[in-house]
Write a protein that binds this DNA or RNA. Structure first.
Length: 859
RNA sequence: GGCCUCUUGGCGGAAUUGGCAGACGCGCUGGACUCAAAAUCCAGUGCCCGAAAGGGCGUAUCGGUUCGACUCCGAUAGAGGCCACCA
């Protein structure tokens, strides 16, 4: 409820599941069809700030209006199961699940989460040991563990660690942990944001600039689940495009890590030898590596920079550090970087290559360092061209393959036009010469592994989930901090930790969260020690990560869901929702569910078995013609317009003329003044003047939003439902067209006339039904069509193809219109078929046909 | 730049998945009813030629596979979505 009410897009998905639910109930199924309010978070809070009302108030008001509209539409939700994520009896369990995550770690051997207590047990029994960097390993002294000893020597046992060290080791393993790292800070929203919430360097909510700055934040270790989140997509009946989006977001890359020693290290007297480890998906191009690049923030930059290069390097670091995310993206085309003064040694042939730093290498991905192969990577290619670094071809394109034309180049003169990034045959690469790319990758990796200078490696683009917000309107973390900043979980008995009531809830504009001003709430005394509560709150996604589970058992006071009920209902059989949640809610919920599954709290590895994305309902078709200066534009000139008006000049500016550079303005024109000539629309009065016809996303600023209230007022809820379902396939984006609604209105009127009678204005015939409806045999021809309709409507509902189901009902009704006598059984069956789509009128007709009770559960 | 999806009458969309293209609805044209309108009913409506019978063309464009292509393959053009310096 982040807005004041429904727009016509909401009821589309709601009606779809309602029809499906009503259909299943009539088949005798037990259907759980719930509705609730995901009301914490940025969108709801922004709404409250804008209206200068406390979010608790706006949320309550908005929910009431939403509930009214939903009831108006006749959506058969089970209101006994209504939930509200901002209700303490709900978020108590959100906090409880957070504690489950906090008290767990990911066991890479079993590839699943386990309780921290299990880890402690293993450490105390010395099955595990601690390496110098704090990482935990199998005890190499135990049977069969020798292979790991090289990596953990010199290790220590748990009992050898100080309490502070022990704490650091454990905290470093938790699935919920705090980290000081560069994060997406949005000054306008006064909070940090997850990667998933930042689009083109701007916040998804509000579109405000986002900058990188290091801050201590709560993170959830979703990356531990990358492989399972990827693999288990195969279990799901989801749209392929959506699965593909999740796959791309997880971004698995298979390649190799390769260690480059730093040249002349010992001679320079700079301490122990160190290596720069790079990640590459193309180990086969190792012979083509002509330089090496570190991310500007890479920890080794300091150590490899020579004195003479130090000023330039530090200046560059400062420059990139201060660059906003937006600027960095804007500058992406132009490569920048600085030479460190040092060289690295290629492990395959001992060649010395220069080490650079550049911001096109990201610290957050892979190892934060790359080997640059300019002949076969476009980014490296651009960089090499700019800084005159050598380009050495090591892959020859396979000839005659039509796809490999881009950037091909053999040996001859002249600069290469572009890098060749495709697969081919290895050349200039000694022992792998002549091998096709896949085999060349394997041979090189094997050779590096034998030397100990490289190894197979898998990397993911997915980052850990930044889980804290500097905002008021969210679930408080059930966490206490001591003076040292160590964190301690609240005991379950103290849940829910309620959000304190504050008049001044607005973001501070600094990283200091509003809750830090809740002085009474803030401090807690325990055993003589003063603790401070965590003042960050959880993001808006927290509550929705598990609401489907609470719907199963919404009022349970002692558990988040009863295990027996959970087994009965899960997984969710059908989830209809928008595609906008592809890499947000739908990924987060799968992650939480898997943690709960690993800990034995739920019975299925995945929460949502079948998922359908309803398509966006666009605004009504708009027709515009154009002016350049004060002249109308011809069809020829129209084709010269470079798309996209700049938003700041308002919707009237349509675009920029490609040739003249002049601004072109659009004027909206009525459809009746437009006609189609061949492939283009023109003004009827001036056929040389082009008209642009298309529909836009509904938005307040464009003024093309349709309010369901007015449609229901004019046509009724059943008609509204029918129209939305009849517009086209559920999954397809479709333009709204108010004019077309009348078709559904005529259909329902005709049904009423056929079955009830001609009397209008609610006047009743007394018998309540049309005199044409009589006890009679159904003629064979119409009986055939009736059964065709039964079959078609049933199948179409199961496949969520409501548009064709309704078409079939219209056809049958058109037949009824032609009958002198409408057999009573035919009328009754038709009414039952219509009921899931138009429940109100169907109930009314059902009673007038003389049936007792509701048809809602009639077979 | 990469990945994905889409393109069928004036409009929204059908087509049992390779077998009568345009179901159904809107709009439009003509007619009935009406003093008139609304509502309703009847007939027509892909484009072109034709009074009609009939004929020709037709699913973005070009090419291919097939007895047969809206459907499968390749290329091109256009629209939309997602990701984006991820090595």
């Amino acid at each position: 409820p982040s807005g004041s009410g429904l727009h016509v897009g909401h009821p589309e998905g709601y009606t779809a599941t309602d029809i499906y639910s009503r259909y299943l109930r009539m088949l005798g199924y037990n259907v759980l069809h719930p509705m609730g309010w995901d009301a914490f978070g940025l969108p709801a809070e922004q709404y409250a700030i804008k209206h200068n009302v406390h979010p608790a108030v706006t949320t309550r008001q908005n929910i009431e209006n939403f509930r009214r509209q939903i009831r108006m539409l006749g959506l058969s939700y089970d209101w006994d199961r209504e939930i509200d994520t901002t209700d303490p009896s709900y978020y108590r369990w959100t906090q409880w699940i957070f504690l489950q995550i906090y008290n767990s770690y990911f066991d890479p051997i079993d590839n699943k989460a386990r309780p921290i207590s299990h880890l402690l047990h293993q450490l105390e029994n010395e099955n595990y040991v601690v390496a110098p960097d704090g990482s935990i390993h199998l005890n190499p002294q135990q049977e069969g563990m020798e292979a790991l000893s090289g990596h953990v020597d010199p290790f220590r046992f748990w009992r050898e660690l100080s309490p502070a060290e022990q704490r650091d080791v454990i905290d470093g393993m938790r699935l919920a942990y705090t980290d000081e790292a560069p994060v997406n800070w949005c000054p306008a929203l006064g909070t940090v944001l997850a990667n998933e919430e930042v689009i083109d360097g701007k916040s998804e909510v509000g579109g405000f600039p986002v900058e990188r700055r290091p801050m201590r934040q709560w993170m959830l270790r979703i990356t531990a689940y990358a492989e399972r989140l990827l693999a288990d997509l195969d279990l799901l009946q989801w749209p392929d495009s959506l699965k593909e989006m999740q796959r791309n977001w997880i971004g698995k890359s298979v390649g190799a890590e390769i260690d480059f020693e730093i040249a002349d290290w010992k001679d320079a007297g700079r301490g122990d030898q160190d290596v720069i480890t790079v990640f590459t998906t193309r180990p086969d191009t190792l012979y083509g590596a002509t330089y090496l690049v570190l991310a500007p923030e890479h920890p080794l930059v300091e150590r490899v920079t020579t004195d003479s290069q130090r000023p330039a390097v530090e200046a560059y670091q400062a420059l990139t550090r201060n660059k906003s995310e937006r600027d960095r993206l804007a500058d992406a085309r132009d490569k920048t970087g600085v030479f460190t003064g040092s060289y690295a040694v290629n492990p395959i042939n001992d060649e010395k290559i220069p080490i650079w730093i550049a911001d096109y290498v990201l610290m957050g991905y892979g190892t934060g360092a790359i080997m640059a192969v300019p002949a076969h990577d476009q980014r490296d290619f651009e960089f090499a061209r700019k800084f005159n670094l050598p380009i050495r071809q090591v892959v020859r394109p396979v000839q005659e393959s039509s796809g490999a034309t881009r950037g091909e180049k053999s040996d001859s003169s002249g600069p290469l036009p572009a890098a060749f990034e495709g697969d081919g045959i290895a050349v200039n690469s000694e022992f792998i010469n002549g091998l096709p790319t896949p085999q060349a990758k394997e041979r090189i990796t094997e050779a590096l592994e034998a030397e100990g200078t490289g190894r197979k490696s898998v990397k993911y683009k997915l980052r850990d989930w930044l889980f804290s917000r500097q905002r008021y309107w969210g679930e408080p973390f059930p966490i206490l901090l001591n003076a040292e900043g160590d964190h301690f979980p609240l005991p379950e008995s103290e849940l829910p930790l309620k959000l304190p009531e504050m008049d001044d809830f607005k973001p501070t504009g600094t990283p200091e969260p509003p809750l830090s001003k809740a002085t009474e709430w803030l401090h807690v005394q325990r055993d003589g020690v003063i603790y401070t509560r965590e003042t960050n709150t959880m993001p808006q996604w927290a509550g929705s990560c598990w609401y489907y589970l609470r719907f199963i058992d919404p009022k349970n006071p002692s558990r988040f869901v009863d295990p027996e009920k959970e087994k009965y209902w899960m997984p969710v059989d059908l989830y209809v929702g928008g595609v906008e949640h592809a890499v947000l809610h739908l990924l987060y919920a799968r992650f939480w569910h898997k943690v709960l599954y690993d800990l034995g709290h739920v019975s299925t590895p995945e929460p949502f078995a079948r998922l359908v994305n309803q398509g966006l309902i666009l605004g009504e078709m708009e027709f515009h013609f154009f002016q350049k200066g004060d002249q109308l534009i011809s069809a020829e000139e129209f084709s010269q317009i470079d798309e996209e008006a700049t938003a700041d000049e308002g919707v009237r500016l349509f675009g920029i003329h490609r040739k003249t550079g002049e601004k072109v303005f659009a004027t909206r024109v009525d459809e009746t003044l437009v006609e189609k000539r061949q492939d283009r629309y023109v003004l009827k009065a001036h056929p040389t003047i082009a008209v642009d016809a298309r529909s836009f996303k509904m938005s307040k600023s464009r003024g093309n939003v349709v309010n369901p209230d007015s449609i229901v007022e004019n046509y009724g809820a059943d008609c509204f439902r029918l129209y939305e379902m009849y517009m086209g396939p559920l999954e397809a984006p479709k333009p709204w067209n108010t004019r077309d609604i009348v078709g559904m209105s005529r259909f329902l009127n005709s049904v009423w006339r056929n079955l009830v009678g001609e009397e209008s204005d609610g006047a009743d015939t007394g018998s309540g039904r049309s005199s044409r409806v009589r006890a009679a045999e159904i003629p064979e021809a119409i009986d055939r069509q009736l059964h065709r309709t039964i079959k078609k409507v049933g199948e179409d509902i199961q496949n969520l193809r409501f548009n064709t189901a309704i078409a079939e009902l219209i056809k049958l009704n058109n037949e009824l219109s032609g009958l002198e006598t409408i057999p009573h059984t035919l009328a009754s069956t038709f009414t039952l078929l219509l009921a899931p789509f138009a429940p109100h009128i169907a109930e009314e007709i059902w009673q007038r046909l003389g049936h007792s009770g509701s048809l809602a559960r009639h077979p």
